[in-house]
Nucleic acid binder design. Sequence first.
DNA 1: TCCCATAGTTCAGGATTTCGGAACTGTTGA
DNA 2: TCAACAGTTCCGAAATCCTGAACTATGGGA
Lengths: 115, 115
Amino acid sequence: MRPLFHPSIEDVSVEAILHALSDPTRAAIFAEVAGQGCVQGCSTFARVGDRDIPKSSLSQHFKVLRDAGLIHSERQGVEMRNTTRCGEVDARFPGLLAAILNAYAGNKDCDTPKA
Amino acid sequence: MRPLFHPSIEDVSVEAILHALSDPTRAAIFAEVAGQGCVQGCSTFARVGDRDIPKSSLSQHFKVLRDAGLIHSERQGVEMRNTTRCGEVDARFPGLLAAILNAYAGNKDCDTPKA
DNA sequence: TCCCATAGTTCAGGATTTCGGAACTGTTGA
DNA sequence: TCAACAGTTCCGAAATCCTGAACTATGGGA
């Protein structure tokens, strides 16, 4: 198991972010992480929306979000702690995440530390 | 050649928009249409950025943008007139397009009629 | 009216990406 | 040391993307 990769914020691209969030499942996961501020693990998401997602797919979805620079994952004992990188991303692309989350949900907001 | 399909604004989804704009080529095309207010035809875009795009691909890209509800295409004699649907989309998903175009370009703006 | 040139669409195939079950790694607790 | 659980990786099947070739639509001569 190779160590989890997190891109530096300068390497984060708009297209990767849009691609990551263009999948409703991933958008739901991200919205959940953004809403909670922090979400534990893949098994939390065995069911997203009305579908059961196998954990291999879930793992891939988390990887896409991670590679896009949207979340940070770190091992917390036996499970994974996921936090958003909204602060960094918002500094680089102001208003982008808020607009997307808002468009998806109508009212969910990104927990930008400075907002 | 079946008539061009344009979804009604209520059927436009966030994921389709994000997917359409998650491709840099399509984003460039859309930014161009949004910037000009109106763009003529596929051959205008034989070259996007640093790549030559075959016109079949271009046609597909325009179709994706059209199906996502981002542009309106209508035949103008022998060629195609493309206009953005920024106004409608912005009314439905406030700030979304502006944030995305801004993130891509840093300064390009969407020509929302009411803005 | 017929033919050609141009703009764009559709089709078909190969290349690429995504999905998900099975096997694996890593950690905790007994 | 072993069992249980969280999550990752592998790999084959399914879906999607790319693009050259063939096709359709329109306009302008002759």
